[in-house]
Amino acid sequence: MEVVEKVVTDRGELVLRRDAGHCELISNGVFLMDTRSGASERTLVDAAVSAVAPGGRLLIAGLGVGFSLASAVSCATLAEIVVVEIEPTVVAWHTTHLESFSGGALRDPRVRVVVADLGQWLATTEEQFDAICLDVDNGPDWTVFDTNAALYADAGTALLRAHLRPGGVLAVWSAAASEDYAARLASTVGPVSTVLTEVEHGEPDVVYLARLAGS
């Protein structure tokens, strides 16, 4: 295992390490994600985009190792892709160590990166989207940072809903199923469907899709 870079951020220590050609992100000693698969992250975007008409605007909440963004860029019908990522170091790594995993997607002219806390940014912008893909921490029931839990609570879910256009879709990645969160999505946003992705060990990854009523 090779440590590629280790930095101290406002949220503590962030480590990028490499193992057998793959990269891992470690935050304060806790594993966040790696580049070994990305199937469920691609599913997150593909499922959301499939419900969006040509010319739509997509918000990706969380850049991670770039699988979601690469999948979004591959969709020619999207007019604009906004990525909100809190950690500038992660954005910088996508011009170096992680560039091959995101396919150089940051260079796509439709892509705009906002370096900010998602909740704070949403509270200060009036931008609306046809689809929002939320992939922050490990989902509603296991967050590495306590502040991220607010995104999955009642107020955070309502805030995300406020930035959907009529008929828009909120797609949420989770490391495990959460009946309580699915119920919150249904009551706050609209009808919910679920897509499962089997993983090598443990419970399947889950993508929740909640659709807002049209105008």
Rank of each mutant, 00 (worst) to 15 (best):
L16F: 08
N138L: 12
P191N: 10
E127H: 08
A39E: 11
L122F: 00
Y208M: 04
N148H: 10
N138I: 00
F129H: 01
V111G: 07
F145L: 15
W142E: 14
D141N: 03
T147H: 13
E80D: 06
C75V: 07
F67R: 05
A149R: 03
V144Y: 04
L78C: 06
A176T: 12
G103E: 12
H201Y: 13
A39F: 08
E99A: 11
T143A: 11
R211H: 08
T125C: 08
R57C: 07
Y181R: 08
D141A: 07
P54R: 10
L209K: 00
V192K: 05
G190R: 02
H163S: 00
E126W: 08
L134K: 02
D34G: 09
L25N: 01
H94V: 03
L151N: 01
L69K: 01
S50R: 15
L98R: 01
A153F: 09
V49I: 00
R211T: 08
A182D: 06
M33F: 03
D135Y: 06
V206H: 11
T124Q: 10
A20D: 12
S40A: 15
L98I: 02
R211Q: 15
G139W: 08
L78Y: 07
A47M: 14
A210W: 00
D19M: 10
G64F: 03
R17C: 08
W173F: 10
A61K: 05
